[in-house]
Write a protein that binds this DNA or RNA. Structure first.
Lengths: 109, 109
DNA sequence: CAACTTGTGAAAAACCGGTTAACGCAGGCA
DNA sequence: TGCCTGCGTTAACCGGTTTTTCACAAGTTG
């Protein structure tokens, strides 16, 4: 079952809760205001907790195609996502960088 | 039980009250003069408070079919609805836009 | 340190939504 | 019938938001 299609369930991650079918991500019950891309990226990352995902994988799931060789879109959106998550959850570092590889979502900071 | 069919109950939303079976929407007891489409759209939105509804969902419930790819009917009616609601309830923003997704009805502005 | 990778602000481009106007159609009425 | 009115639909314009791209700063690795 893929995220964003069918009856994927909610993804509760501590104070963060992601509801793909409702197009919403909540922190302590209050909705984050994310754009489509930001939300899709968060959903994708959060659906594979603790797994290091390459930019190619992320791009494929969120953009639905292959990135140009030196495309930085994923980085830009990770940055924006971190900013918004950091605003709502100042003490948690949910998205980790793995140099030379990609990004990893860790539910417990 | 679907909205618009059968004996759906009234929907009181603060000073706004919606009575589907009477084809009426009241503000402070005074009826708004809404057209069929406007009323159906309001009923549909108000029946799913706080839930972001896509244009497809709204169109399906109100028009009973699938919208053409670039159909803007929903937007036009949301605009008209906002105008009439705003007239009667100047300080409340009941219908919220979610860019790239759809609209959300929030009973408390 | 040099080379490479990632973070991020900002401009440019693309896209989306708010709104108004025009049009066709149907009903009411003289 | 001919006119008027109101509703629904569609198209177009405009402004705002989002996405993409670029450039440089900052960080990492060997």
């Amino acid at each position: 079952m893929a995220i964003g299609t069918g009856s994927s369930s909610q993804l509760p991650v501590g104070r963060l809760e992601i509801r793909p079918e409702e197009h919403a991500a909540l922190v302590d019950g209050r909705p984050l205001s994310l754009t489509m891309r930001e939300l899709q990226l968060l959903i994708t990352l959060a659906s594979h907790p603790q797994r290091i995902m390459t930019r190619e994988e992320l791009f494929a799931e969120v953009w639905g195609s292959e990135p140009r060789r030196e495309d930085r879109s994923v980085d830009v959106y990770v940055s924006r996502l971190r900013a918004k998550l950091g605003q709502a959850l100042p003490d948690l570092q949910l998205i980790h960088t793995h140099n030379g590889i990609g990004y990893r979502f860790s539910p417990d900071g």
